[in-house]
Design a protein around this nucleic acid. Sequence first.
DNA 1: ACGGCGATCTGGACTTTGTCTAATATCCGG
DNA 2: CCGGATATTAGACAAAGTCCAGATCGCCGT
Lengths: 136, 136
Amino acid sequence: MHYTRDNMAGLLRSHDINPTHQRIEIAHALFSRQEHLSADQVMAIVNTRHSETSKATVYNTLKLFLEKGLVREVIVDPSKVFFDPNTSPHHHLYEVDSGKLSDIDAEHVQISGLPPLPPGMVTEGIDLIVRVRRKA
Amino acid sequence: MHYTRDNMAGLLRSHDINPTHQRIEIAHALFSRQEHLSADQVMAIVNTRHSETSKATVYNTLKLFLEKGLVREVIVDPSKVFFDPNTSPHHHLYEVDSGKLSDIDAEHVQISGLPPLPPGMVTEGIDLIVRVRRKA
DNA sequence: ACGGCGATCTGGACTTTGTCTAATATCCGG
DNA sequence: CCGGATATTAGACAAAGTCCAGATCGCCGT
Ligand SMILES: [Mn+2]
Ligand SMILES: [Mn+2]
Ligand SMILES: [Zn+2]
Ligand SMILES: [Zn+2]
């Protein structure tokens, strides 16, 4: 499957998001690359040729995508949030030195023995992050 | 075991940290409470009576504690880092609404099926965060 | 006690990430 | 084409964290 700008409108609509020029560009940045991007990186990508999209719109749009379940947030670096076009359940491998973030398929990973949740609470998600660094 | 200011000097020394007035106060804030605190919270606690410790020192000291393995960092909220006096392997439960962060003993939790690490890499840590919220 | 000196602490400027607002522009149904 | 709702924008603002040059501290030898 190939993510073109043309598919983006449909993808957005299917998530109840009104497709606009800026939203299509931002979705395209994330989905065509299938990478974890920070708001800053999205901004840079979208504005490579000539300035097209403001900072406010980049942040507004990413938050909207998040609310609508189109992307997921990955909190792994204290200095910035990553946005993840992969919303299927999966985990992350974080290379501390380089800042590289990659996916770990959840299919074969088993987590067991977690204690019961506090009453009246529901799980919103389980984040598993394997932090690695270059061997000394 | 009770953490008094008097114990702190020994604890610091045992981690190769020169105990100073400010470092003792900051360590005491964390260890006497046994809670996850942000830099801001540490600052507030240490300066309750009268201003004693500067922002720069709070940040420098927490970073020093981190390097020396006296505390651990928990990255769970995009807007601030928490410092954790509990350095034994354990996981975290994060209540998204309230921001409350609590420990999950690692003893009974089993994680299996993780893929092999990329060559030349070693695991620095595995962070498991259970994100929960109040039932609708 | 005194002077010296490395280690530590400090105020405040600065940077980065993210939020907010009020004005403008765009879109769309009638 | 009009009018209202929706979306975008510049730029001011806020919060967390970093940095630096100068002041201070605590200890040692005299
Ligand atoms: Mn364009
Ligand atoms: Mn004091
Ligand atoms: Zn991912
Ligand atoms: Zn903890």
